[in-house]
Nucleic acid binder design. Structure first.
Length: 932
DNA sequence: CTGCTAGCATA
DNA sequence: GTATGCTAGCAGA
């Protein structure tokens, strides 16, 4: 559509910045002959050419501007220090394309505007206001909804990507409010991209409803007290913020641009210029846009008109020779489907010659122990990959090489420790191949772990890594297989699409590694953690998981039975007291019975406002009423039964008769592992009934369970890092550290410390590790806050080094934005510099805790490496079967027990020389419970 | 069927 | 008051 029929001259304003990312992500990873990234340039040029044609027409004349954000802070940053704080930095591959983009847009004849300190939106707002006042029909091309607030009789929006056009009626249709209420609308819902909060839990629906009811934001705010529900409550909480939010989302239309546009504010200053063909020719030459160059040469040869042609936006090389494919990300790459033995042999040669090869398996299951291979992909250089399907079985699927033949061919390479390999989450692929009898060797790198070490606080899926580091978006698993009920197994995915997907996975893994590894290696501490800790631990975890642990399902079944009986009794008693049956598993129904029917006092509320029935509350009520105690006991038994005694037997792998947990190595930001399916790191121990679950974790005949755990490891680390003399001495002398703490705080001797004093000191010690304040201590000791404050003060007076550590850590974290473990692992704390109080306090507590928790994690990982290394070197059959943060559990053949009980604690204690001794204690038994 | 909350298990 | 993962209930699709 063109505006040729409108009587007013057109002013076309392009929000260049809003299209940068879109073009970048939409385009394949194009490169100039010398390797310079050109995808975003290509996308922008195609779009600018088309826009000029569509809106202005191909003849001379017309007014326009292409506006970009400048780098650096703007006035909004000064208004609000969290503005755009969550935004990821621009990928390097995009950043380098910005200067060429400005250049080429100018060559195409466009006035280009980029004003330091002023955002593109505000510049556009100003240009639009002035243009409209000067009698122009203003068309704003943007992908950003925020600019809808500028729409009026003279101003329309057009989204060039989607071809959507918005006038006043269009805005009402799309957003449900008129353009002059868009600011109010945006203020209410907030802007997550720019990190501007709105009203919590209020989205487009509620915002539109409120604005319809109350006319405007001011109307809504005035009516705040009358608005019911959670949304109303959140609105009242947000009242102080909203004026500032409104200011942030309001586009400024009176910026001073005169220093940046010669002749401004005359609209004539924005006249479109003729295309600079010579300059453009040279530009196309430099960046390898061959098709456009030819086209321009042809035009120059004919010496014809100024017509600018418009190849499709997604026409990757601009030749127009191929129709644009819906999946543009696969263009310009070469992925081969390997269906015969010759091609497989050819790829094997390439793999064997490669300095580093990426591989990825596609399977029929997420469970690493049960997954069967459906296909394997490889990449040895960017842009190229092979996919070897072996088990696609949909109707019409081509004949594939048999899995056995493929593995037989590849085995020499897969098992060659001298053949360097990289993968994304190599632990999984190692399991999968092990399921088929292949022991993969030669893993050099894992992009999952590179990313985890580099920025643990982010997510590490290959999809995200490719976006973050390659600026690339591949096919997603969901694209291929769908989700939920409609999900199909990978074996039913069309082989051509599977080739693209799996090929991309391998190829992107290789490329992510090429980008990420240098960044890890640039920081010596990170490289050390990656190479000397995470990579070796990954292999050990694979072995632990694969070995599994023996669980006696019979013992658990019996416990389940006993639990069920006791729960029935409790239920009957509860129904009698309540006078009616109710679901003891429902906090909601418990609340109804307790607080409404029986009229017990409400002690506290949950986050969403319901009366809380948590343990603390029920404990308190149990002193005065009979029902809460029954509920408490029932709840704890239900937890045991539901989570452990019923569930664990179901997790026994029928093929091995064992339970194989999965350790997540890249989840916890402090460096800890986490365990899932099942979680073996939260098996009960505190209560007697719970503890019995551990009786089911047994050693097979001729073996024993050995548990070795670090004693007080985090407190020892605190002593080491802080250098506090009192704490150091307590450990050096081998004292009971809680008693020693109590003796200091209560000004008595170690021998005279009462058990209550020790309990207090223990709570303080733990609290300190968590960055606790007086409130928290008071809460957990059940004392008043002043008393708690007093304890803390006395503690810090006696252990001044600890106090100094806390203060210095907070200061250093605020200064650097991260904290470190003893071994150089970094924990980013983006919110420690953030304005908002509670969040910053939270980050400060993390700053205190993370070095201790993280160093403990580093130490036990080093212990795993040391112990497994010693076991292998000595040719022992002892197997490491679990890790529980400060504890390692082994399944030990009887004859190896002397070696293990001697060596393991020594190895654990010897992984680091701190200023206090490390101590590991050993327990031995027929099951895990008795090994403590 | 999916996603959320409340509650609770561990270090 | 740090770091996790899992379950039942329940609401909205």
């Amino acid at each position: 559509m063109s505006d040729a029929n409108t009587p007013l001259p057109t002013l076309l304003l392009v929000d260049g910045s809003s299209y940068l990312y879109r073009a970048y992500h939409a385009m394949p990873d194009l490169r100039s002959p010398d390797g310079f990234p050109t995808g975003a340039i290509h996308g922008l040029v195609a779009m600018m050419k088309r826009l000029r044609d569509q809106i202005i027409g191909s003849g001379p004349g017309g007014h326009a501007a292409c506006v970009f954000d400048a780098s650096g802070p703007t006035f909004r940053d000064a208004w609000y220090d969290q503005y755009k704080a969550q935004r990821a930095p621009m990928p390097d591959d995009l950043r380098t394309q910005i200067a060429p983009i400005h250049e080429v847009v100018r060559l195409l004849g466009w006035p280009v505007l980029e004003v330091p300190g002023i955002e593109a939106d505000d510049a556009i707002g100003t240009l639009a206001r002035v243009g409209a006042a000067a009698g122009h029909q203003v068309v704003i091309s943007t992908g950003d909804k925020d600019l809808a607030q500028l729409v009026n009789e003279r101003v329309t929006l057009i989204n060039t990507m989607s071809n959507e056009r918005l006038d006043i009626a269009g805005v009402v249709a799309k957003f449900g409010v008129a353009p002059d209420r868009i600011i109010d609308y945006l203020t209410l819902i907030g802007d997550t991209v720019d990190n501007v909060p709105g009203v919590d839990k209020v989205g487009p629906k509620t915002a539109v409803k409120w604005l319809a009811e109350h006319g405007s934001l001011d109307g809504v705010m005035a009516a705040a007290n009358g608005i019911k529900g959670v949304a109303g409550e959140n609105l009242r909480k947000a009242l102080d913020w909203l004026p500032q939010g409104r200011r942030l989302v309001t586009v400024v239309t009176d910026c001073d641009l005169s220093a940046h546009i010669a002749g401004w504010p005359a609209v004539e200053a924005l006249a479109l210029q003729p295309v600079n063909r010579e300059g453009l020719l040279d530009f196309y030459q430099r960046y390898g846009f061959k098709a456009w160059r030819k086209e321009l040469e042809a035009e120059l040869g004919v010496g014809g008109s100024v017509a600018v042609t418009t190849p499709g936006l997604f026409d990757a090389d601009g030749t127009g020779a191929e129709p644009a494919k819906p999946d543009n990300s696969t263009l310009a790459r070469s992925y081969e489907t390997v269906l015969d033995a010759d091609r497989l042999a050819a790829w094997l040669e390439r793999l064997q010659a490669a300095p580093l090869a990426a591989l990825d398996t596609e399977t029929d299951s997420l469970d690493p122990m049960r997954a069967r291979i459906v296909g394997i992909s490889f990449a040895v250089q960017p842009g190229e990959a092979a996919y070897v399907p072996v088990a696609h079985d949909y109707a019409g699927a081509p004949d594939q090489l048999p899995l056995d033949a493929v593995l037989a061919t590849l085995r020499p390479w897969l098992e060659d420790a001298a053949a360097p390999k990289v993968g994304q989450n190599i632990k999984y692929d190692t399991h999968v191949l092990a399921n088929h009898g292949i022991s993969v060797r030669g893993w050099q790198h894992d992009t999952l772990l590179e990313s985890y070490v580099f920025e643990a606080h982010l997510t590490h899926s290959l999809e995200k890594l490719a976006e973050r580091h390659l600026g690339r978006r591949g096919l997603s698993y969901e694209d291929l297989c769908g989700k939920g009920v409609n999900q199909i197994p990978f074996s039913q995915v069309d082989i051509e699409r599977a080739t693209t997907y799996s090929g991309e996975d391998s190829e992107m893994t290789l490329q992510v590694h090429q980008v990420l590894h240098p960044r890890v290696a640039a920081v010596p501490g990170l490289l050390h953690v990656y190479r000397a800790i995470e990579m070796p631990v990954s292999l050990i975890l694979q072995r632990i998981e694969r070995h599994g642990v023996l669980v006696d399902a019979g013992v658990l079944a019996q416990q389940s039975h006993q639990l069920a009986e006791r729960m029935m009794q409790l239920e009957q008693q509860a129904y009698e007291i309540a006078g009616q049956p109710f679901n003891l598993g429902s906090p909601k129904q418990i609340g109804e019975i307790l607080f409404n029917r029986l009229g017990l006092p409400v002690k506290k509320k949950t986050a969403s406002g319901a009366p809380s029935t948590d343990e603390e509350v029920l404990q308190e009520l149990a002193a005065d009423y009979p029902l809460p105690a029954r509920i408490l006991e029932h709840r704890s038994l239900a937890k045991l039964k539901g989570t452990y005694t019923d569930k664990l037997p179901l997790m026994v792998n029928p093929a091995t008769g064992r339970v194989h947990t999965n350790y997540a190595q890249a989840v916890a930001i402090t460096g800890r592992l986490s365990s899932n399916d099942p979680n073996l790191q939260n098996i009960p121990i505190r209560t007697a009934e719970g503890r019995r679950v551990r009786e089911a974790f047994i050693a097979p005949p001729g073996h024993v369970i050995v548990s070795a755990d670090y004693s007080q490891i985090e407190l020892r680390i605190m002593a080491h890092i802080s250098g506090d003399p009192g704490l150091t001495r307590a450990f050096a002398e081998g004292l009971d550290v809680h008693k020693a703490t109590a003796a200091e705080v209560f000004n008595t001797t170690v021998d005279a410390v009462t058990s209550e004093q020790r309990r207090y000191a223990k709570t303080i010690n733990f609290g300190l590790i968590y960055g606790m304040g007086a409130f928290g201590l008071a809460q957990s000791l059940g004392i008043d806050q002043k008393m708690a404050r007093d304890f803390i003060d006395r503690y810090f007076a006696r252990f001044a080094g600890v106090k100094r550590y806390m203060d210095e850590t907070k200061a250093s974290a605020a200064d650097k934005g991260y904290v470190e473990t003893l071994f150089g692992r970094r924990i980013e704390l983006p919110e420690i510099r953030g304005g908002n109080g509670p969040r910053r306090s939270g980050a400060e507590r993390q700053a205190i805790n993370a070095p201790m928790q993280g160093t403990a994690a580093d130490l036990i990982k080093l212990a795993m490496i040391a112990v497994q290394g010693a076991l292998d070197a000595a040719g022992k059959r002892t197997a490491m079967v679990m890790q529980v943060h400060d504890e390692l559990v082994f399944e030990v053949p009887d004859d190896e027990l002397p070696w293990v009980r001697e060596q393991v604690p020594a190895l654990m204690a010897g992984v680091a020389q701190l200023s206090v001794p490390l101590l590991a204690e050993v327990g031995i038994g027929p099951n895990w419970e008795q090994a403590h």
